[in-house]
């Protein structure tokens, strides 16, 4: 059986020198981002957050409270800071919580992102994964965060992985009720891919199947290590190469393990220096995180008032 051209291309991904990639990634942590640049960076990072709750104990109440936080991350921002802070980019939930999030976010412009396709393992029959996706879209999801079939990928069955991504893409391409556009994010789960070569190959393979404006994403957050600077750089370079080669424009979402405002600025520096200013927007870059938003708020308040905040000043969502 002849391999399809897309699969062949993916197998021919460049190899990655781990030591150099890590050194390059680490170099982004040495940028001096101060004063007005820091203020702007913190607000941009806040607007890129996909506020996430993916726990077995999630309830409609918790999701509603998370949505309130998404709309207005700091309710007393005008009193304390004298400005209105941006809302976050999206709220990311399990499929069963999509109707709740869609209702709570209605009219806010904040997207509802739903993990789907048997998150986090992806170890379900394909028809179940596709129905999972279609149901989330019908319930109001604007973005689908799918997981790839890592078992198939690691056993070299790239054709299967590619085909499955293509099928989910097709479901998303149909859009939601009322012609709503649905974007796809493909989670590679880099923590299970073992090598940077695999990360690059999986990135290329996913990018070949998805549409302009879709994303690739590092992790589910359920596997350690989750997002690291190194794997994010490898994926950003795959995006850059696709853009330069085919003019196909893909977004990036590191997820899991990004907890501090400082880390988020390091990632922004990496995006800027790898892909350029055009990617410094919530349309093209996201942070999948649950506690990051609070640390960003803490930094914004400290920079404005000169005072350090306590852990209980924000949070609960």
């Amino acid at each position: 059986m002849a391999a399809s051209p897309t699969v062949f291309q993916a197998v021919n991904s460049p190899t990655i020198n781990r030591v150099s990639a890590d050194a390059r990634a680490a170099s982004f942590t040495t940028r001096s981002i101060k004063t007005t640049a820091k203020d702007a960076g913190l607000r941009l990072a806040l607007s890129m957050v996909d506020l996430t709750t993916l726990e077995g104990k999630d309830s409609p109440e918790k999701v509603r409270s998370l949505c309130a936080k998404a709309r207005r991350p700091m309710p007393d921002d005008e009193r304390v800071l004298g400005e209105r802070l941006p809302s976050v980019a999206a709220v990311c939930v399990y499929p069963s919580m999509v109707p709740v999030a869609a209702e709570a976010l209605g009219g806010s412009g904040i997207n509802v992102a739903s993990v789907a396709t048997g998150f986090p393992s992806g170890q379900y029959p394909l028809d179940v994964r596709l129905r999972d996706t279609a149901k989330a879209i019908a319930d109001g999801a604007d973005e689908i965060d799918m997981v790839i079939n890592r078992g198939a990928f690691l056993s070299g069955k790239y054709g299967i992985v590619a085909e499955e991504i293509a099928e989910v893409t097709a479901v998303c391409a149909q859009g939601g009720p009322g012609g709503r556009e649905v974007h796809l994010k493909v989670i590679l789960e880099t923590g299970e891919l073992e090598t940077y070569d695999n990360v690059r190959r999986a990135s290329d393979l996913a990018i070949a199947q998805i549409r302009d404006g879709d994303f690739i994403k590092t992790s589910t957050g359920k596997v350690s290590p989750a997002a690291t600077m190194g794997v994010t750089l490898v994926m950003l370079e795959a995006i850059r190469d696709a853009w330069l080669r085919d003019g196909k424009r893909i977004g990036m979402k590191p997820a899991g393990g990004i907890r501090t405002a400082k880390q988020s600025l390091h990632y922004l520096a990496m995006v800027k220096e790898t892909l350029g200013d055009a990617w410094l927007s919530p349309d093209w870059f996201r942070f999948g995180a649950s506690s990051l938003a609070d640390d960003i708020l803490r930094q914004i308040v400290r920079r404005k008032t000169g005072r350090y905040t306590a852990g209980y000043d924000f949070g609960v969502a």
Partner: peptide, 8 residues
């Protein structure tokens, strides 16, 4: 000053 104002 920071001992005084640190909320934690």
């Amino acid at each position: 000053e920071h001992f005084a104002t640190h909320r934690a």
